[in-house]
Write a protein that binds this DNA or RNA. Sequence first.
RNA 1: GGGCGAUUGGCUCAGUUGGUUAGAGCGCCACACUCACAUUGUGGAGGUCAGAGGUUCGAAUCCUCUAUCGCCCACCA
Length: 906
Amino acid sequence: MNEIPSRYNPKETEDRWYKFWEENNLFSAKPNPAKKPFCIVIPPPNVTGILHMGHALNNTIQDILIRFHRMKGEESLWMPGTDHAGIATQNVVEKAIAKDGLKRQDLGREKFIEEVWQWKEQYGSTIIHQLKKLGASCDWSRTRFTMDDEYSRAVREVFAALWNKKPTGLIYQDDKVINWCPRCQTALSDEEAPHHELQGNLYYLRYPFKGESPKGTGPYIVVATTRPETMLGDTAVAVNPKDKRYKKFIGKTLILPLLNREIKIISDNMVDMKFCTGAVKVTPAHDPNDYTLAKKHNLQFINIMHPDGSLNKNAGDYNGMDRFKAREVVLEDLKEKGLLEKIEPHSLSAGHCYRCHTIIEPYLSRQWFVKMKPLAKPAIDAVKKGRIKFHPKRWTKVYLNWMENIQDWCISRQIWWGHRIPLWYCRDCQKLALASVDAPKECPICKSTNLKQDEDVLDTWFSSWLWPFATFHWPETKGLSPRPQGVPSAVEGQGTDPEEDLKYFYPTSVLVTAPEIIFFWVARMIMAGLEFMQDIPFKDVYIHGTVRDIEGKKMSKSLGNVIDPLDIINDYGADALRFSLISITAQGQDVFLSQEKFEQGRNFANKIWNASRFVLMNLEPTYIKADLCEFFKKEDLDIVNRWILSRFYSVLREVSKELDIYKFNEAANILYGFFWHEFCDWYLEIIKPNIKNRQNQVAMYKVLEKFLRALHPFMPFVTEEIWQRLPHDGLSIMIQSWPHIQEQMIDKKLEKQAQSIFDVIKEIRNLRSSIELKPDQKALVSIYPHTKLKHKLIEDNADLIKNLTKSEALNILDSSTRPPAAISAVTGDIDIYLHFSGLLDISKEKHKIKEKINELEKIKNSKEQRIKNFEFLKKAPKEIVEKEKESIEELKNSLKRLEKMYNELL
RNA sequence: GGGCGAUUGGCUCAGUUGGUUAGAGCGCCACACUCACAUUGUGGAGGUCAGAGGUUCGAAUCCUCUAUCGCCCACCA
């Protein structure tokens, strides 16, 4: 066994085992009536995606769940795929062709989309490869893409279903002030335009009355704005009707500076009298509030901007100027005319494009919307009734709050890459917009074939929200829309029956995602599932934290604080990455990362490696062929073996429990502590001298083999590598069963007894260290156990104690007679003496004992206080009171002995 | 303006439904490398659990308030 290197090298193993698993189809799942299904659909990463720490955490959690349930004997499917990510992908490809000096308009729609597909073919599976490096056990044979033909069909199906929904369709077109990204030149939903604080100014502008001096001298009204360039689109000034300052001006006319447009002063309760001057400029086409106001008051809507954010001809002389340039110039011009009263610093929050971070422009345009209220209702109920549970549950409130205040969803995007809106218009009768899954041949009214499809595409999330069922070949499986004759099923030849798949795996078991995705995706999937499948899409939602850098900042390329998971895999291994990430991720808390944190995972992998190496070097395979139970009854095992088995099964029970309630860090840390500090530090060290002993062989092998299985979901590679080297039955550790919890092996009393032996050893070591005994110096130890039971325990394990304390002799005393020339300590009901031949510093020794006495005295006193309290005795549970009493007795006993020791030292 | 989270040894964090003397990793100090592992072992130092009040026999844990930091949502120009 000398060929096993003393350092674990993940590079040598990881890719090899991953390939092995794939080649043996170990990730694939099929409906199996004999088994319980377990299914997770992956949050499909963008095709443009590159694995970052957020992905690493997200997918590690999913992989742990999948591997755990797979081992538990459930038919476990992890459905993978990627998202076409409309805007993001279009941006990437636009950048790529820009290198050749091309714009997408130069290519035309069709050619450009072809270009994107080509890009997708070439680079789109990068992230899939990276997920494989991480060890993700997805059923890759099922990999879906949200633009697959079949998936696209599902999207059209859903659009048509919403369009045709009785009594009134849920899709409508309207002119609204929406979030417009001038860089991406498309509308965005509210969720896609998150607000961020900006340091800006409040500009106070003077609007003169009609017929008065146009200079800033005459009577005027002062309005405040953070976006002064929008004044070019003003069509009114509004005041509160109750506002005494302005009451008399209501209905009067002002002259809009720079453009000299006449605008009226109107009144509305919406205006806050207390804010700024109490008079507000109204820009109906560039502010959602003003839009509402304008509708109510029948004002003119003047759009002053081109789609790229530059001003248009409605802005007069400012035509063609970028919006921010125009801001400067407008201010200058106003200033020059004496119409800029003052500037105040003001922090404001503005929407930002979630793809390119450009400040969005509220922009009046005609878009398609989905009425959300009817969809939200059942989705609210499903969560309120507990059919879907959030973990941690605090997210329930966030979800419900959003759902209960849901706004209609703007689903049209003015880009090319995506699902084109399946609406056709008749150019001839112009009467009709027709929603259809397949392109209609003719107008159902006038029979014209001169039809035209809507130019816009759908929001990417309009396809994502179907993910939990569209990945299972819906709607084909629902028979909603029979496949046209002659069109082969996309799923033929795959060997599974799609209808069975959907029935078997839907609803899926759990969805694992990050908090920022709750509105985008989780909420909408719940709505879509209930609407189109008449059932929830998943039962549990696990929301993990956000990965941040050590300063708490979100990791992002622009901040340059990114730790690349692939670098970590390269330097430390995927197991190390996975383990470290998980062990520091408390349920739902944000994760603060630094490079060093991965050392823990690497060290643990190495520890497992070396412990296993040691086991392998000492294993007699002939001993471990038969099962433990056949050879040994529990009673036949010595205390150490019974202890390690009891501990292992206790740990296994805890780990299973923690995994069931999504406490991954707890589970990981329990396994870590057990292996390192119990199995290695104590167990292996104890059996070392008698390692060839048959029961040691069996127990050591069994515990290691089962431990590897329990650890496998967390660290799949190193566990596989070692398991394969151990004597084993079966192809791979990943399809072994999760170890059965042998409850009969768990014995807490015995664990306590073993612990008292370890305590004795620790005390002896402590005494050794206190007199600076060199490691190779043998010591003489005397022990006085105060009970018969302990006496026997020490007697039975004398060799063990001697070995682990480098003692050459161990006297077990029958009375508490202090041996000459010794230092002493007390642990539980055992006195310990270490013989010492050198010059003993008695005062130091006395001081040490005194300190111990003081410490115990303090605890004893506080406990006695408690026990004297009548209320405590009356109200506390009996077993707590008993425990306290016992504990006091023990403390008293220890104190008595310590005092005796103290007094004996002269 | 609402909502949520955090505040525990030098650092980063655990701590389930309130119940013995509050844990871990890293760091630190001392000692130890032919004997599985220095990516190691043994021993050690270090905390009045942010502050104040309350509930309770009993609070890091439950309640109220305060402070600091962070996140999310919201149409305050």
